[in-house]
Design a protein around this nucleic acid. Structure first.
Lengths: 336, 336
DNA sequence: CTTAAGTCCTGCAACGTTGTATAGTCCCTT
DNA sequence: AAGGGACTATACAACGTTGCAGGACTTAAG
């Protein structure tokens, strides 16, 4: 029912191809012809059929963004920013939720997607390193993962340095028993490993001893995990006087446990998180955190994809690693 | 480069159409043939080309979800749930962010989308009523908007009743000066109007007088708006002893203002929100709220779309209005 | 005045898929 | 033994678009 090139051509009295040329901004079309065709296009309300265009050209104009979960404010924010950045290139973003399941991440990477996409921006949770090699030639940009010999471009902050900054902030306030919440054993939990490394580095730098009991594991990176971990920390014989949580949600969960047990923040326990989600700006006390430059991450990811895309699928080029800035945001939970 | 029906057919020694029949589960294919074809499919790693399929069949297998913003936990949650529900029907969800801009919402409704979609699930913010008539035949399901003579199906809770429940909860606790935060003048701000109506109804029911000074407007529905509105309320000559916020974010912002000014919650001011986002379960005090049955909203929206889709574009049928349950969740901010 | 280069437009073929039409085989009924 | 199904497989034509090759005409250069 919708008008096609054919209908426009008939109405304008030109060939189908000429209409196509007008639509695509081909240069050698006489102004008069162009005007006539444009009038017909407007009159019929012609809109190009993307399916046909894709079938012909191989490009869909759609990129996919795969995140572990949209419910997490950090990923929701990134998603919003990427949609905006993609829009500037008139790309549509298709958002996939992996729920951190290895199988779904693998499907994604192996191109077993239901829908054809030109590129993929991917924030892996279950997969790491070699497993992330894209089978077909679809360009991919990795977010937040730092692989030594990564098979794809990736954009991330320096997790280890940022974690060290956060921990250093706590040591500089004179705290001596500093716990970490969010430790994960899985070898693929690269983010957790890096933040742990940064935490340990900052402790060593301050001449503080490690206490394995203060390195609290967490199943997930949610409030509930932070609340549970904090409860376990408080039950220790000598509880910590500060906690570095590997993300803000963990920190907010921990804060809830602290406050509901009558522990003062930051009086008794100082608390710092990671991500700078909006929630932390309105909690009581407000939450100190490390703020990644999220808008820049989104912009760079889209730019990187655009570059790979315009270079043609053949132009591989070595995978690039882009570092994005972060900054420490001290709020009430540490310097109340 | 990827294998097509043609390649599989050649390898299996059958016609293209037979392969197509196998792929589509057509019944009358001899088991032996089917096995041979399947083997070829596996060997070549054949994946159907969606563009071609769509070109042929007119269906893309993609539905769009348009929300004002992904950053809001409520919408992020709904989005996640809808992606899950759509997956059960093997649909892909394309997420659009309107930022509440009328123009972008209009583009959406008028089908000026870049990408072909089979259906649209839409949570309008700037548009209301008549403006929401979809020009082309694309099925649409509206979320959270209640239009008297709506042009499309829609799924929502009874906003007015839910708001009344929230307010009634406050009156039942003996509060007499009950404020509302989130009032909006724009005629299209249907949600705000309905919640205000429910608030007023519950006040009247309890025999409490209206005080226009207690009906605080808010530019947006974010924490920052709630914080600002609460500050204005506290500056009144006789501040309220309870506040009904039109969503949880407003309430969390308000809570921040209260606590940072040393006002006790719920001791001095009881606070209730709306949406039941996760943040409210971990704030201190935890936030009382009205919880819409979000999973059901998502499921119904997808089901409704599926029905319209399978009925064919012609089968209009009268727009339907589905009501979803809500329940009051009393937490510390009212019954601390 | 010829040739070359540039401009404007067109027809054809192909992208990968599926609906329709059709033809042959086999078995069961009459 | 003839007719009528159900079963299996095929060929062909579209869906709407764009790349390619080329035709007709105009202008510039030799």
């Amino acid at each position: 029912m919708p008008a096609g090139l054919k209908d426009v051509a008939a109405r304008a009295g030109v060939s189908i191809k000429t209409v196509s040329n007008v639509v695509n901004g081909y240069v050698h079309v006489a102004p008069a012809t162009r005007a006539r065709v444009q009038a017909a296009i407007d009159a019929l309300g012609y809109v190009p059929n993307m399916a046909a265009r894709q079938l012909r050209s191989g490009r869909s104009g759609v990129i996919a963004l795969a995140v572990p979960e949209l419910q997490s404010p950090y990923f929701a924010g990134i998603a919003g920013l990427i949609v905006q950045a993609a829009e500037r290139r008139s790309w549509t973003v298709l958002i996939d939720q992996t729920d951190g399941q290895a199988e779904r991440e693998r499907d994604l990477v192996e191109g077993l997607r239901r829908h054809a996409i030109d590129g993929l921006i991917f924030s892996p949770l279950a997969l790491a390193g070699e497993e992330l090699a894209l089978r077909d030639g679809t360009p991919m940009v990795l977010l937040g993962e730092r692989v030594w010999h990564g098979p794809a471009d990736h954009v991330a902050i320096d997790n280890t340095a940022a974690a060290a900054d956060a921990t250093r902030h706590l040591t500089s306030l004179g705290r001596r028993r500093i716990a970490a919440i969010g430790v994960q054993d899985r070898p693929s939990a690269v983010t957790a490993h890096q933040r742990l490394a940064g935490y340990r580095a900052a402790l060593a730098e301050a001449g503080l001893p490690f206490d394995p009991a203060l390195e609290m594991p967490a199943d997930g990176f949610h409030r509930v995990d932070g609340a549970a971990a904090m409860a376990r920390l408080l039950d220790l014989e000598s509880p910590p006087d500060a906690v570095f949580c590997f993300n803000d949600l963990l920190a907010l969960g921990a804060m809830r446990t602290l406050l509901s047990r009558g522990v003062s923040v930051p009086g008794d326990v100082a608390l710092i998180g990671f991500d700078d989600i909006e929630d932390g700006r309105f909690s009581t006390p407000t939450l100190s955190t490390v703020a990644p430059d999220a808008p820049r991450i989104a912009q760079l990811a889209v730019d990187l994809l655009a570059e790979r895309l315009s270079d043609g699928p053949a132009a591989a080029g070595a995978p690039r690693e882009l570092r994005v800035d972060h900054r420490l945001v001290a709020r009430e939970s540490t310097s109340g």
